[in-house]
Structures are given as C-alpha cells and as structure tokens.
Nucleic acid binder design. Sequence first.
DNA 1: CAGTGGTCTAGACCACTGG
DNA 2: CAGTGGTCTAGACCACTGG
Lengths: 236, 236
Amino acid sequence: MSKAEVPARYLALAGELNELIERCELTPHSLLPSERELAERHHVSRMTARKAVSLLESEGKVYRRPPRGTFVAEPRVAFRVGSFSREVHDQGHFPSARLLSAREIEPSPSVRGALKLKPGEPAYHIRRLRLLDDEPFAIESTYYPASRTPGLLDDLPEGSLWDLLAQRYGIVPKHSRARLSVVSVEERTARELSLRPGTAGILQERRTVDGSGRAIEFARDLYRADRAAFTVEEDF
Amino acid sequence: MSKAEVPARYLALAGELNELIERCELTPHSLLPSERELAERHHVSRMTARKAVSLLESEGKVYRRPPRGTFVAEPRVAFRVGSFSREVHDQGHFPSARLLSAREIEPSPSVRGALKLKPGEPAYHIRRLRLLDDEPFAIESTYYPASRTPGLLDDLPEGSLWDLLAQRYGIVPKHSRARLSVVSVEERTARELSLRPGTAGILQERRTVDGSGRAIEFARDLYRADRAAFTVEEDF
DNA sequence: CAGTGGTCTAGACCACTGG
DNA sequence: CAGTGGTCTAGACCACTGG
C-alpha cells in the first residue's frame, strides 16, 4: 500500500501528463514523449513511466499505436441503447460497418433462452465491426431466429440490420431490454478492435421483441470503453 | 506486439486461473495462490505473475485485499438507473449508506447548468458511500437547489433521499436522463471504495426533473465496475 | 515476525514499421 | 536501421496485518 502523503511516482507522472491534456497543451492525436524519454526526464525506470502511461490508457485519455508511439485520445461519443448509427450521425460522426462473419449456428443455451427457440431450432449469427470515422468502435454480435428470417444471411447490407428486418420480413422492433457491464476485452475481440487484451470494454447484452412480444434479436455488442458512453432515459 | 501464435506468458497464466474460476474449482471469496507462489509454480518472474493477476482484477474476477492476499470475486449485481436500493433489495442483497459529507456550496458551472440555478444561487452537495452487503459499492455525489429544499442538510436519513424530498418538500421525481461511461477511479474515490487508483468505475451522471420539468437533482455517482451492471429498457 | 500485495529498478530481447 | 511499445527478468524495499 502506498503512503497517501507521498503519491507513487507513477501516479505523479500520470497526473502531470493528465494536466497537460486537460489544459489542452496536448491536443487530441498529438504524440506523447516515448516511455524511454519520460523515464529519463522524470528520473524513473521505464517500467514506472510505462505504468503511468498505462493508467492514462485505461482512462481512455491516450491510446498506443506501436511502433509509432502514444497519442492523446479524443473525447467519448454518447448515444442511446439501440440507436448507435442515427445518433452519432446527428452528432457529426460517420458510422460504418464491416461484416466479420455470418453463419447459421446451433444456438448456445443462453442464445436459445433469449430467442425462445425450440430444441433443435437453428439461429443466425452475424458479427460485424462497427467503425466510427473509420476507427474501430465496437463489435456487434447478433443472433436471429432462423425460422422467422429465412435467407437473412444472403445479401447482408452495409447499414442497419433492423431496416432489413422491416423491409424484407416486416419485422418491427418494439422494445429492447439491455444490460450494460464493464468487461475486459478478450484476445480475439481485442485484435478486431485494435486493442490489447485486458483493455476495458462495455458489454451490451440486449434482447429485442416485436409488437407481439416475440424475440427477434439477441445481441452481445462490445463497445470500446474509451470511446463510447450511453445515455439512458427513465420515467418514474 | 506479441505473436498471436504463442500467447504471452501472463495471458496464459491468466487464462489458466480464469478457467479454474469458470469451472468453479475456485469459488467466490476463496484465496488465490500468492503472486510469489504463482511465479515459482509457473516458472515466471513475480512481475509477470502479477500482470496475470492484475488482468483478472481488471476483469472483476478477483479482488486484492493486502496483506491478506487475492480472492475470487462475486458476480456483478444488475439494476436499473435510478433505483439501486429497491432492486438490489429484491434480489436478496442488503443496501445501506454512510454519509461522507453534506455542505452548502457555490456550484460549479456544470452543476449550475444542470440544476438551472441563477447566478449566486447556492446548492447543497451530499456525498454518500453506498454499500451492498456491507461492502463498498458506489460513491453517490448529489446536488440539490438550496432554494427548493431549505434545510435539506439537517437531519439527513440513512435511506432514500428521494423519499425525503417527497415527504418533507413534496417534490416528486418524474424523469431522469443519465449518461453512463467508464472511467478510471481517482485517488480519493478509490480510497473511499477500497480500490486502487486506476481501477475501472462506472460514472453515472444523472439529471432528474419533477412533473413541472424543474431540475430537482443532479448526480455524479461512481459505481465499482467489478460489482455493478445496469439494465436499460427502451421502446421504439 | 512472516507473508502479502504495491512499487520500483536497470537492465534485456522481441516484432513491427517507416524512412 | 533506428525507434517504438510489449514482454520479461531477478532482484529490492515498503507498509500493513495477523498470529
């Protein structure tokens, strides 16, 4: 345990760097001094300088781009659960998607439960990389009851899957129930999002039903915690 | 950058420990081997063993209690924005609160904006530690317009502040708008929550209005990311 | 006093990339 | 080829706590 009176050196260094960022003396996407340089300037070992930078990285205040260096991050983008594309577009950002995989699967128990599938009933699984201003932002992992959306995987759109559900199948989302938690990004997802394993991510697990209460989608989306924030409205 | 084919040693060790936890061979609150012991058993340096344990800690899967050791964590508790006490109680948990400070303040610009205070109008600021089953769970930091709640700070309850607003002032919350983001816990808050600085926390910034649309509360609550999850309902 | 996690050092080698 | 971050070593000293 560190003494509260004398802050640890890595905390002191992180604090100094943070102040430079807060005061905009270091602006978004500008290059920080290298870890070796910080170590030398502040008379600490490289491991200690690195710990300071890692702290700022975990706060989403800087990002690393080896082997180019470490850069100041942009502020987070906020939006409501279930309306990423429209809201960020209204905020002047450019959302896009890239298909990672689309398969018919035998659903796991949790997916089967969420979609209320009968035993043996197949599901479609679609994974997409969501980008914001051409930077990786989230991994979308969605499941659909194959029986209600035959041929869904043929001719998948670049844009909204909900639009496709409406146009091709007449399925209209009515209500979502989501759960937000903070997780650490595991290896494959980290690679896809250009992050390192262990970085914080926001997991959104979401079940969506149509007007008749039937499950039409189950999602396990993972957002970069350093880039995303969620807004929530609640009535009492 | 690590080779994808040969996972880093700390990732391998973290994976092994994680499997023991997933398979319930290590149950909540059971003691992990010490970092020195893990290092010796797995033929790595202590710094590498420590990095593996830190990864699990950042995932909320273990928690450290120096100098006793490192323990397996409990699963997260989920609840809706704005109804912590009632929901977790219904889930069989015991919520409580401890007053940290209650003061009349000159509001900062952001608080003044959120509460729509006139220049020079004071606000009340209440900070409370929220506990769940007697373990620190969140720091509640709430602001109220002093003019609408005279004497609020006298005789503060252990329980719900919203109940107090209703009973003493006839003020009934009607609608909240919240923003959830992941932050790194700064030093004072970390101390209050028995965490180390840099741990992930969920910041809930929330503005609540009454039936006439007037702001009655602004909150900046910080939840332990390893303990809390939020549920959200959305209609389309 | 033994053992824990927290911090720190002064090195090392690696893969990767841009000039 | 120089420089970056990523990983790793083999130590060290510290504060703290429980027996």
